Computed example of a mutant assay.
Amino acid sequence: MDLETLEKHLDASPLLQAHKQYFLNLAQPVVAIRLGTSKGQPLESRFGGRPMVPAGFAWPEHPDGHYLFVGQINFAELPDGPGRPAELPTSGLLSLFYGLDEDDAIFWRDEDYLKAFYWPDTSDMHEIQAPHHWVTDSRALQFENGIDIPRHEELRQDWPVDFDELHDGFDTLEESGALPRDYLLGRPSWDSLGYDPTPDPEEYPSGSHWRSLLTLQSHEEFNWCWQDGARLMAFIEDDKLRAKDFGRLQVDCG
């Protein structure tokens, strides 16, 4: 969603227009992730397939089963321009893996459920074979810079109107694609939770603020079923994101 789309949405409702500046002040940069129609090439941003890794990389493991490849983000492919989030790297490859075992012994809120590896230099990488049979076809990704606003009552304490009157409008924006369901940054969005999933600093003390890094809906073609077909939300600490350190992510699903 761009600023013009948000303003049109607000202006279409007398209730929202009366609080237009409040909602404009909530806007944050977001990068929408769209599935392309083609198979992803080796160093392209893509979901599924086989990851590109540097020499010496060992496929991640956990005590109860395997990690599965989610996909990779080539930051050089994110659109340039004034809407590009300054927090994200301008180059390099981010590769994501999630934990899975057939007995559900690993839980999405467990530490290291989602593992991320960032490589600034992509000049000497190769495709690696998974040590298991859960490999899906790849789909290239396309990106679109935009803005995001909170979509859930739990994300704010100061709504100027009854949130029930906002709910249908947010659903309409999602259904139209103006508010994406797969995206980088922005704010978390979910299907079934009744709380703000952003990590509590008291539970994860570090002195740094946690923020949304990645939100993904379930996709049948990649065998993603985040809590009965809902969404995965990954969070990162502000200072870690600025340092391009993706080694510690916290996840919730719902």
Rank of each mutant, 00 (worst) to 15 (best):
D2W: 08
E4Q: 13
E7R: 15
K8N: 15
H9E: 10
A12H: 03
Q17R: 15
A18M: 03
H19G: 03
L24A: 09
N25I: 05
N25L: 10
L26D: 15
L26E: 15
L26C: 15
Q28S: 15
Q28E: 15
V31W: 03
I33S: 02
L35C: 12
S38A: 12
P42Q: 14
P42I: 12
P42M: 12
S45I: 08
F47T: 02
G49M: 02
G49V: 02
G49K: 01
R50G: 07
F57G: 00
A58Y: 04
W59N: 03
E61W: 07
H62P: 02
P63W: 05
Y67T: 11
Y67R: 12
L68H: 07
Q72W: 14
F75Q: 09
L78H: 10
P79T: 10
A86D: 11
L88I: 04
P89K: 07
T90D: 10
L93T: 00
L94P: 04
L100C: 10
D101P: 05
D103Q: 13
D103S: 12
I106P: 01
F107N: 12
E111V: 04
D112G: 01
Y113M: 01
Y113A: 04
L114G: 00
L114Q: 01
H126N: 06
A130L: 07
P131Q: 05
H132V: 06
W134A: 07
D137R: 11
R139Q: 11
E144F: 01
N145T: 05
N145H: 00
N145F: 02
D148L: 05
I149A: 04
P150K: 03
E153I: 08
P160Y: 11
V161Y: 13
V161M: 11
D162R: 13
F163C: 10
E165K: 14
H167D: 11
H167Q: 11
D168F: 13
L173F: 08
S176R: 14
A178R: 09
P180N: 08
P180T: 06
D182Y: 09
D182V: 05
L184S: 03
R187K: 14
S189V: 13
S189P: 01
W190M: 00
D191W: 06
D191Y: 10
S192W: 14
P197L: 04
P199K: 05
Y204L: 11
P205W: 04
G207C: 13
H209L: 12
H209F: 06
L213M: 02
L214P: 01
T215W: 01
T215V: 13
W224P: 01
W226I: 00
G229A: 06
A230K: 08
F235A: 00
I236N: 02
D239Y: 07
R242T: 14
R242M: 12
K244I: 00
K244A: 11
F246H: 00
F246G: 01
F246V: 02
V251M: 03
V251K: 00
